[in-house]
């Protein structure tokens, strides 16, 4: 299984993503955003960071980078695409995923562990966990407050497209569970075809020996297995 990781000016989580994928047995290749296309691969990853300094809106400029024309076309044709944090913001800006990501409700940049409940395991990335499983992973963002109109939220809910939701962990209050004010506690959503997944938390940073949690390692193991 080979994953292409797209680099933009301001991307900073690409090595974490590469390590997590390689630990799970994948081969990886970095792709520059100015390239005309991504190489042949089984998965395209848009990692976290602050592409183009978050100017205008997070992910707005990156969504129109040259390589993104190829990424969007391949995503629409069914290629698996994973966007994490800034990558999720880009997927929203391309229109591949619905809704918007607003400034965090508390206005703070939130950098800490959160707990996520898996709500849909019928996806390559999530098949290795059981539905309802709660994992501990870090978030690090200032604009992760998921917004969608009521009708869109109802549709996402009904179609099982809210993949991850913020929930309270052990000894955690409900109020602290949602780090950014996201509507319905949405932490990650998938497109209607099920091949494009975007999430604000960083599963890649909960897979390794020197990280505080390894809860997300099964996600990467499952992903590599499903796409091999």
């Amino acid at each position: 299984m080979k994953a292409a990781i797209v680099l933009f000016p301001g991307t900073n989580r690409e090595i974490d993503m590469k390590d997590a994928l390689e630990r799970a047995g994948a081969a990886t290749e970095m792709v520059w955003h100015g390239d005309a296309e991504a190489p042949p691969c089984d998965l395209i990853v848009l990692p976290g960071g602050f592409s183009h300094g978050d100017y205008l809106r997070c992910g707005a400029m990156a969504a129109h980078s040259p390589v993104m024309r190829d990424v969007v076309a391949r995503a629409r044709a069914g290629a698996p695409v994973l966007g994490v944090c800034n990558g999720f913001q880009m997927l929203i800006e391309t229109g591949l995923l619905p809704g918007a990501l607003l400034r965090n409700a508390g206005l703070n940049f939130v950098c800490r562990d959160v707990h996520l409940r898996l709500e849909n395991r019928r996806l390559p990335l999530t098949g290795a966990l059981a539905e309802g499983d709660v994992i501990r992973v870090p978030v690090a963002h200032g604009d992760g407050n998921y917004f969608a109109d009521d009708e869109t939220l109802r549709r996402l809910e009904g179609e099982g497209r809210i993949v991850f939701r913020y929930v309270a962990g052990p000894d955690e209050t409900e109020e602290r569970a949602n780090p950014n004010g996201s509507a319905a506690g949405v932490a990650g959503v998938v497109n209607d075809a099920g091949n494009v997944l975007g999430m604000m938390p960083h599963p890649e940073d909960a897979t390794g020996p020197r990280q505080q949690s390894r809860d997300a390692a099964p996600l990467f193991d499952g992903l590599v297995e499903a796409l091999s």
Binding site: A100, L102, R103, N104, A105, G106, L107, N145, F147, G181
Partner: peptide, 10 residues
């Protein structure tokens, strides 16, 4: 209208 504006609130 209807979109939360945390900055406006601050």
């Amino acid at each position: 209208n209807g979109v939360l504006d945390p900055q406006g609130k601050a």
